[in-house]
């Protein structure tokens, strides 16, 4: 029994819904652009704060955060779709038709990735159009996008796991808020070294901080702690995959 037909079927359908319905496509596309505009545009003077040292400039500094944020939220928004499918009963069709049900989760994950790929492409074009400078080479950029891809998987597997446990769109705040908090408890506006007070303590223990710093390092051409960042991202990806897999088992036990 092949897995790919289920993965591709679910991914194609989910992606079609996500890209052809304005109420789904607009927030996914507009929010990252909006955050990028507001942060990179409104806060650019932060580069003059004593101790702020990021040669490519504040636009590139914020681009990395918004790229990771869009990756995580493309995953979360796809999780909303999973919850909606369970709420309106469509998930029953998938559970009944898919010989290997793990393919359903992988199909949603593939859709989340492709959905983010569209957002990331637009975001990157806009960033270069407004004059973003980069210091890293092609390998660094590949590193950045692979890291973001892992964040996308984490975002989806977390939200998808919640969606399959609660099976209602009313759980959306529970899927969204923790991701929002993890993102904003990282060094969003200035590097970790310039944070003070409680946020510094929180950011230091926040795994996303290291992923973000490595990502910014990639775009500057001197990525710090690359292995640690990838190990963290892969570790979180595996943990959240397991969370989603157990969520599928819960949904199966409940009959969809």
């Amino acid at each position: 029994m092949k897995l790919w037909p289920v993965v591709s079927g679910v991914a194609r359908r989910t992606l079609k819904n996500a890209l052809t319905n304005p109420q789904i496509v607009l927030p996914t596309m507009l929010f990252p652009l909006f955050f990028f505009t507001a942060f990179a545009g409104g806060l650019s003077q932060l580069r003059h704060v004593p101790g702020f040292d990021f040669p490519p400039g504040y636009t590139a500094f914020q681009f990395v955060f918004v790229l990771l944020q869009s990756a995580a939220f493309s995953g979360v928004f796809t999780g909303f779709g999973v919850a909606r499918d369970f709420e309106n009963g469509f998930a029953k069709r998938l559970l009944l038709a898919a010989p290997r049900r793990v393919g359903i989760v992988l199909g949603y994950a593939l859709a989340a990735l492709l959905r983010w790929a569209v957002v990331a492409t637009v975001l990157t074009i806009v960033a270069f159009a407004v004059g973003m400078r980069i210091g890293g080479g092609p390998v660094d950029l590949v590193g950045l996008y692979v890291l973001a891809m892992l964040v996308n998987f984490c975002g989806f597997f977390w939200a998808g796991g919640m969606a399959m446990r609660f099976r209602t769109i009313q759980a959306a705040p529970l899927m969204q808020m923790p991701v929002f908090l993890v993102l904003f408890f990282a060094p969003v506006y200035v590097p970790l070294s310039l944070l003070q007070g409680w946020i510094e303590g929180v950011a230091t223990v926040n795994p996303l901080t290291y992923v973000l710093e490595t990502g910014r390092g990639f775009i500057a051409g001197n990525p710090p702690h690359v292995l640690a960042a990838f190990a963290l991202a892969i570790g979180m990806g595996v943990a959240f995959w397991w969370w989603a897999f157990l969520g599928l088992r819960k949904a199966e036990a409940a009959g969809g």
Binding site: Q23, L26, P27, L30, F31, F34, F35, T37, A38, A40, G41, G42, L43, S44, Q45, R47, Y58
Partner: peptide, 28 residues
Amino acid sequence: QAMFPVLFVFLFISSMNAPRNLIGVGWF
């Protein structure tokens, strides 16, 4: 509810996080 993001644009593209004299990007 669909108008919500529009209102947020007004909030974020303002002097919310920085005084106007310290906004460095011209169009912003």
